Simulated assay, not measured.
Amino acid sequence: MDFREVLLVLHILLAIIWAGGVLFIGWGVFPAFRKMAFVQQRTFLQALMQWSHKFLTAAGGGVVITGVLLGTVFGPISQWQDMITTRYGLIWITALVIGIVTLLWGTVVGFRQSARLFSKVTLWKQADAGNTKPLTKALAAVVLLESAEGVGFAALVVLMVLF
């Protein structure tokens, strides 16, 4: 196995960790934590986000870096012109932009919005006291905002199938 193949395996593994981790939190953990009391939900989600944010951001960054290397140093893009004059180059640059935007969206926009929600202790205490509507609305907004990452992942999968 040559170095390019090792890099490709690493790229795929990091993509699985990044996308799989984000999707598991959204579709696996998020619905399951709803069984807890609201104040416990806040504490749990805050701890989960603080731990997973660094790990998943690093995996996403690794996907972008290995993707750049696979397309350029160890791939067919040898000059700037290749990115706009070849089918591979157009797909590659599109995937690069979508990957970077998806990573930045999750690490900057989504994470900050979630952190803001978790810092609003009174919202969670109100929900524990029976007034769940404001928290439910805020959680729905975060879920909608975070779903942009899922769209980015889906677009990346479509582009990878096109290669």
Rank of each mutant, 00 (worst) to 15 (best):
residue 144 L to I: 03
residue 81 Q to N: 14
residue 79 Q to P: 00
residue 35 K to R: 13
residue 70 L to G: 07
residue 64 V to T: 08
residue 123 L to W: 08
residue 28 G to D: 00
residue 66 T to W: 02
residue 149 E to A: 12
residue 81 Q to D: 13
residue 14 L to E: 02
residue 91 I to M: 07
residue 41 Q to P: 02
residue 23 L to F: 12
residue 136 T to L: 10
residue 42 R to A: 07
residue 25 I to F: 12
residue 72 T to H: 07
residue 63 V to K: 06
residue 22 V to A: 15
residue 95 A to G: 11
residue 15 A to H: 00
residue 121 V to S: 11
residue 128 D to R: 08
residue 22 V to P: 12
residue 14 L to D: 01
residue 81 Q to H: 14
residue 152 G to Y: 09
residue 133 K to V: 09
residue 88 Y to S: 10
residue 127 A to W: 12
residue 132 T to I: 06
residue 123 L to H: 10
residue 138 A to T: 01
residue 17 I to N: 03
residue 153 F to S: 00
residue 148 A to T: 15
residue 79 Q to N: 13
residue 138 A to W: 03
residue 115 A to W: 02
residue 22 V to I: 15
residue 17 I to W: 07
residue 156 L to W: 01
residue 153 F to D: 04
residue 52 S to N: 13
residue 32 A to H: 07
residue 48 L to W: 11
residue 160 M to V: 04
residue 42 R to F: 07
residue 142 V to A: 09
residue 23 L to G: 06
residue 143 V to E: 13
residue 104 L to K: 09
residue 98 I to N: 10
residue 107 T to W: 13
residue 140 A to N: 12
residue 134 P to Y: 10
residue 78 S to L: 12
residue 157 V to S: 01
residue 135 L to I: 05
residue 15 A to D: 03
residue 156 L to M: 06
residue 85 T to P: 03
residue 140 A to F: 09
residue 161 V to Q: 08
residue 95 A to W: 01
residue 150 G to T: 00
residue 98 I to G: 05
residue 149 E to F: 15
residue 98 I to R: 11
residue 118 F to D: 01
residue 93 I to W: 06
residue 77 I to N: 07
residue 40 Q to W: 03
residue 30 F to E: 14
residue 144 L to C: 11
residue 20 G to V: 06
residue 113 Q to F: 04
residue 23 L to N: 09
residue 87 R to C: 06
residue 95 A to Q: 03
residue 32 A to S: 11
residue 148 A to W: 14
residue 132 T to G: 09
residue 112 R to D: 09
residue 126 Q to D: 14
residue 128 D to T: 08
residue 12 I to K: 03
residue 95 A to C: 03
residue 29 V to Y: 09
residue 111 F to K: 08
residue 25 I to Y: 14
residue 139 L to N: 09
residue 67 G to I: 01
residue 163 F to M: 15
residue 98 I to L: 12
residue 22 V to W: 15
residue 20 G to M: 09
residue 134 P to S: 06
residue 58 A to T: 15
residue 122 T to F: 10
residue 158 V to A: 02
residue 77 I to F: 03
residue 150 G to W: 04
residue 26 G to H: 03
residue 78 S to C: 04
residue 118 F to S: 04
residue 135 L to F: 07
residue 41 Q to D: 00
residue 51 W to P: 01
residue 86 T to R: 02
residue 95 A to Y: 02
residue 138 A to E: 11
residue 119 S to A: 14
residue 65 I to R: 01
residue 125 K to M: 13
residue 154 A to Y: 05
residue 33 F to V: 14
residue 73 V to R: 07
residue 40 Q to A: 11
residue 82 D to H: 13
residue 1 M to Q: 04
residue 70 L to M: 13
residue 89 G to Q: 10
residue 70 L to V: 10
residue 83 M to F: 15
residue 47 A to G: 05
residue 65 I to G: 00
residue 132 T to A: 13
residue 67 G to Q: 00
residue 132 T to H: 10
residue 98 I to Y: 07
residue 129 A to T: 03
residue 55 F to N: 10
residue 141 A to K: 13
residue 139 L to Q: 05
residue 110 G to Q: 06
residue 110 G to T: 10
residue 19 A to V: 12
residue 104 L to D: 04
residue 63 V to C: 01
residue 104 L to Q: 05
residue 124 W to F: 10
residue 80 W to G: 14
residue 127 A to C: 12
residue 12 I to Y: 02
residue 16 I to F: 05
residue 142 V to I: 11
residue 127 A to N: 07
residue 32 A to G: 11
residue 151 V to N: 05
residue 39 V to H: 00
residue 136 T to E: 11
residue 8 L to G: 01
residue 10 L to T: 09
residue 149 E to P: 02
residue 108 V to P: 09
residue 57 T to W: 05
residue 124 W to Q: 02
